[in-house]
């Protein structure tokens, strides 16, 4: 398998060369990293080239690298870990100050499959802007990207330029925020209950305490 991958890698090197940012083979899988300006062109090539022939998009997802490599071991005085400190402020307009992060925070990862040549590849592109992350949409190249891009927009707030119908997909109607971002608390922002006096459903800030039962520890090497 790895020989096949190396062949594919050298073919991509020869034909795309400068357009590729990085190529890595790990766990017997080939990852291509491209800059966002070359994203569409590389995707088109991967689909149309004979040797590549990636005729199906298996998966597309967003990744938020905000807390990559950070552990939770500093827990303060409590003997029972309360590893997460929750920020109770809540931005209704969704424009609030994003946490500071050096480098590119959001990535869009695409998994491609070639039924013709029986091979897979991973295509990764980082969004240039951390405040309003945006990459080109590949819906035109693989139609199945449509809903996956909607999902990545919904969960991470990544904008896809040229997407025909970029609406929320998984969260509730009227949901505010992007829940899979690392600065979005696991317990959420709002809780909902039926109010007997007002005779309707009311939304309130969550009242439960966030807690971590097993802290996050980084021990694994490369």
């Amino acid at each position: 398998m790895s020989e096949v991958l190396q062949k594919l890698q050298s073919h991509l090197d020869a034909s795309l060369g400068a357009k590729l940012d990085k190529q890595t083979i790990a766990f017997n899988q080939l990852t291509l990293e491209v800059l966002s300006e070359n994203y569409l062109e590389v995707a088109q090539f991967l689909r149309d080239d004979e040797i590549c022939g990636f005729d199906q998009l298996s998966d597309l997802c967003g990744v938020d690298y905000l807390t990559y490599g950070q552990g939770e071991w500093d827990t303060g005085g409590s003997s029972f870990t309360r590893g997460v400190k929750r920020d109770f402020s809540f931005d209704a307009d969704d424009s609030g100050d994003a946490p500071e992060f050096e480098g590119k925070r959001f990535a869009v990862v695409t998994h491609l499959l070639s039924v013709k040549n029986n091979q897979r590849i991973r295509l990764k592109v980082y969004c240039d802007d951390n405040q309003a992350p945006k990459v080109a949409s590949i819906t035109e190249i693989w139609n199945s990207a449509n809903w996956y891009e909607r999902e990545a927009f919904d969960l991470f707030g990544i904008l896809f330029d040229g997407h025909p119908d970029l609406r929320r997909i998984l969260t509730d109607y009227g949901f505010i925020g992007h829940p899979f971002r690392k600065d979005f608390p696991l317990i959420g922002q709002l809780e909902m209950r039926y109010d007997e006096e007002q005779k309707r459903v009311v939304y309130e800030p969550v009242s439960i305490e966030p807690r971590v039962l097993v802290p996050r520890i980084v021990r694994g090497g490369k």
């Binding site: 790990a26 766990f27 899988q29 990862v109 991973r122 980084v218 694994g220 090497g221 490369k222």
Partner: peptide, 8 residues
């Protein structure tokens, strides 16, 4: 712990 990296 898993080693650093990604796999599908």
């Amino acid at each position: 712990c898993l080693p650093e990296g990604e796999a599908y």
